[in-house]
Nucleic acid binder design. Structure first.
Length: 194
DNA sequence: GTCGCGATAGTCT
DNA sequence: GACTATCGCGACA
């Protein structure tokens, strides 16, 4: 994935970027061990147009990487405990981003289980996803094209479609259906974590 | 399987 | 001083 390809895929509308990311894979290699997740759940945050976005009130030390170019990784600490990953869209300077909420493990499950301290529920939430992949604040601001956390383009698995729902855990602008989930065709009830 | 609740600390007001 | 873009556990059914 080159920077040019990143800009093309992510540099436009953040909602399109979020849809595009479903089916893509996130790969990390730390301590010579690879872990990889196929994304099936993401949320869009639209910077200064979006009261739920960390960037709504402008740039701060924490959210600086959100103002970087498309394909920048924005990692922040949530509830003082968990690390959450975003991929910056639009930009530079626009501060739109897509929160990576979950996926399914496709490589390195044993390593994920060790990092998570359990064998089930490895990647079915934002904090769990980051922990399973070994991502933390050190990776904030790196590029998913050239950095230690790589984005691998990919399509949805056959038989899956994209469903939209309201975002989770946000109190402002909670009515915006900007959560995107990959679900099997015919499964209209939303159960992405199964 | 689903629901409710407490822990926990960085960030902003 | 208040507020989280959460998780895991224990009660239920």
């Amino acid at each position: 994935m080159t920077g040019r390809e990143l800009a093309e895929a992510l540099g436009g509308d953040v909602l399109e970027a979020a849809r595009w990311l479903l089916g893509c894979r996130i790969r990390t290699v730390f301590d010579e061990t690879a872990t990889e997740v196929r994304l099936n759940e993401v949320e869009a945050y639209a910077g200064d147009r979006d009261p739920a976005s960390h960037a709504y009130r402008g740039q701060t030390p924490r959210n600086t990487s959100m103002f970087g170019p498309p394909g920048t990784l924005y990692v922040y600490r949530s509830y003082g405990i968990h690390w959450c990953m975003n991929i910056v869209a639009a930009g530079p300077g626009i501060a739109h981003a897509v929160l990576l909420r979950g996926g399914e493990p496709v490589a390195g499950e044993a390593t994920m289980a060790r990092r998570r301290g359990r064998r089930d529920h490895l990647t079915d939430g934002p904090g769990k996803c980051s922990q399973a992949l070994g991502v933390d604040g050190r990776h904030d601001g790196t590029s998913v094209a050239t950095g230690p956390v790589r984005l691998i383009p990919g399509a949805l698995a056959p038989g899956y479609v994209v469903a939209t729902t309201p975002r989770i855990g946000v109190s402002r602008a909670a009515d915006r259906p900007w959560r995107f989930v990959a679900v099997p065709v015919g499964d209209l009830t939303d159960s992405p974590t199964r």
